[in-house]
């Protein structure tokens, strides 16, 4: 019988920690639901958790293998995911455990040496790749950006890639993870690159730097977790690059955000193995200051939009100066800290 484990019950949470530790699994810092199975003596013998659309932190006690406990736990979690309207679920697991999950209807999206990333839809990733707008053969590059919001630095990166290649696939992160909604970020990117005919705009969807593939991008976590997730994300990107014929990825160098700089480091090491060149472009400077979206957010936060006017393309500046942006500006002001960790 699977039951919910309350985050407020210190005793139950301690049991979860102990079980995970015994089975050599790192407990995620970000979980929004945990469940477990107890034996007759009240000892926890199996557990699993979820966060957003991902299932994680599974463990079955050593003495209770082969009793189908994992099946019960996964069934329970999937049922709950469906009940709250989330039909597409993801999980990571150790490579040696992947076969258990593939028996439960999960299929592999990508793998790195220490983790496998799976989804509960067969062919989900293949159909995402097939659905992307393709470009004719030619020198093709890709850029992934959060554009939070779109600055002249982003513009500079896109312009450079568009100048050096026949086609550029530009992915805008579709995860809602900050005060500036995706629809606005996307629109500002679209307006900002409208004059570049060889740029194709895509939504990143659930597979590129989403809270499913790369939760630590959005929520604080330790470096080891960031590296593993970054490696998986890069490996997923490899699949997308193959589908689109992308041979080059442009990234802006990242002096201020810890997680992005780790991500860039992993990319630089791994992309070449996947047949993609990684070009790191130094930050653009305006008046001796590095152009950065977090500086812009900070300025909006401090009600000083005009101090960063030289960092913004006209379309972005116009948007934030207009009354239409009032609620977004309000949301940025309401934040404690506008910088990405």
């Amino acid at each position: 019988m699977v039951s919910e484990i309350s985050p407020r019950s210190a005793r139950a949470q301690k049991q979860v920690d102990a079980l995970l530790e015994r089975e050599g699994i790192r407990r995620d810092r970000n979980l929004d639901y945990t469940c477990g199975v107890y034996d007759d003596d009240g000892a926890l013998i199996a557990t699993g958790s979820s966060f957003g659309s991902t299932l994680r932190c599974f463990a079955v006690s050593d003495g209770h293998r082969g009793e189908g406990l994992l099946n019960e736990v996964v069934s329970h979690l999937l049922e709950r995911q469906f009940a709250r309207g989330c039909s597409h679920s993801f999980l990571y697991t150790k490579p040696e455990s992947a076969r258990f999950f593939s028996d439960l209807g999960f299929s592999e999206v990508a793998r790195a040496e220490r983790a496998v990333f799976m989804e509960n839809r067969r062919g989900g990733f293949a159909s995402y790749c097939a659905g992307l707008q393709k470009t004719p053969a030619g020198k093709t590059a890709a850029i992934v950006m959060n554009a939070n919001p779109f600055t002249r630095g982003h513009r500079y990166l896109v312009e450079k890639a568009a100048g050096e290649n026949d086609f550029v696939h530009l992915f805008v992160l579709s995860e809602e993870a900050g005060p500036i909604p995706f629809a606005v970020r996307r629109r500002l990117v679209r307006d900002g690159v409208a004059d570049l005919p060889n740029v194709v705009l895509h939504d990143s969807g659930p597979y590129i730097i989403s809270s499913a593939t790369f939760p630590s991008y959005f929520l604080r976590d330790d470096d080891d977790a960031i590296r593993t997730q970054a490696a998986l994300d890069v490996s997923v990107f490899g699949g997308i690059a193959r589908a689109l014929g992308v041979t080059r990825r442009y990234v802006g160098d990242e002096p201020t955000s810890h997680v992005t700089s780790l991500y860039n480091e992993v990319m630089a090491a791994r992309l070449p193995e996947l047949g993609v060149d990684c070009t790191v472009v130094p930050r653009m400077e305006a008046d001796g200051r590095v152009v950065s979206a977090s500086t812009v957010r900070q300025a909006i936060h401090d009600d000083a939009l005009d101090t960063v006017a030289d960092m913004l393309p006209e379309s972005t500046y116009r948007y934030f100066a207009s009354p239409e942006a009032a609620h977004v500006v309000q949301a940025i002001r309401a934040m404690d800290e506008a910088k990405h960790y």
């Binding site: 999937l78 469906f82 039909s87």
Partner: peptide, 27 residues
């Protein structure tokens, strides 16, 4: 809308159903 029924336990089956596009797609 998407819905599911059943479990992954032995002797059972998990059925997930979603809106389709004019035909039955069974995996």
């Amino acid at each position: 809308k998407p819905a599911a029924a059943g479990t992954l336990e032995s002797s059972d089956a998990q059925v997930m159903i979603e809106p389709g596009d004019g035909k039955i797609e069974l995996s």
